[in-house]
Design a protein around this nucleic acid. Structure first.
Length: 229
DNA sequence: GCGACAG
DNA sequence: ATCTTGTCGC
């Protein structure tokens, strides 16, 4: 488990953070298909907090995309770098997530984030931000619709409907289990929406949430417990 | 002006 | 995100 410091020059105000998003947004790549679903590595990242002690723990778990077996994992802990503000989640998670990714012994392949990518007030959510900083292919799989609207997808797993902001399609509400609430998929960086959904389905043979985020979620919680920063 | 709002 | 046991249902 590695330890991280908040980077020098990290945004201190919401205004600064929004300016960073507006600045980096131009670097997002949307015209690459991304890795083929079901092959190579797929890495889940997630973060857990202890606001009481100002501690944050992140985990990165690499899976074999074909078997979903764990190939490698890493964790990092640090100080909370930003308050939770809807639309600015990335500033709270990214320093620790980057440290966890850096600590991996192998290439992450596609990175699956807990949250949004292009589906974001300024089209630059966590998954896009992480993608631009690492240049890795990234997608976002969120548990809630945030500010977006959608119609319920049909009952069977694999059904989907567009995720909309006004009339703009920014992602998909994708059903990963029959009759269960859908997840909300959006593109991060260097992956197509079509492929992002295919990856999400490949990662959900049994549960609503991708194996990547399930594994990363439990690992970062463990790391948080053992953190005595 | 008020309410809603990824994690 | 986090506080938290048992419990209804497939």
């Amino acid at each position: 488990m590695t330890t991280v410091r908040i980077p020098a020059g990290w945004p201190a105000t919401e205004e600064e953070a929004r300016a960073v998003q507006d600045e980096l947004r131009a670097r997002v790549v949307l015209d690459e298909p991304g890795p083929a679903p079901g092959s190579g590595h797929v890495t889940g990242v997630d973060v857990a907090y202890d606001d009481e002690h100002d501690v944050v723990a992140a985990a990165a778990v690499v899976l074999d995309a074909a078997t979903l077996d764990v190939v490698a994992e890493a964790t990092a802990v640090g100080r909370i770098s930003f308050p939770y503000v809807p639309g600015l989640l990335a500033f709270r998670e990214i320093p620790t997530v980057l440290a966890a990714l850096d600590a991996l012994p192998c290439p992450p392949g596609l990175v699956v984030c807990d949250g949004y990518g292009r589906a974001h007030p300024r089209r630059f959510g966590l998954a896009s931000h992480l993608g631009v900083l690492t240049d890795l292919p990234t997608i976002g799989v969120a548990k809630n619709p945030f500010t977006f609207t959608y119609d319920a997808p049909a009952t069977p797993r694999g059904s989907w409907t567009p995720l909309l902001a006004a009339d703009e399609e920014l992602g998909r509400a994708l059903r990963t289990r029959d009759k269960v609430k859908p997840v909300f998929v959006s593109v991060g960086h260097r992956v197509t929406l079509e492929n992002a959904c295919a990856h999400t389905l490949a990662l959900t043979p049994e549960y609503r949430l991708p194996e990547t985020t399930r594994r990363a979620d439990s690992l970062c919680r463990e790391a948080l417990k053992e953190a005595a920063l």
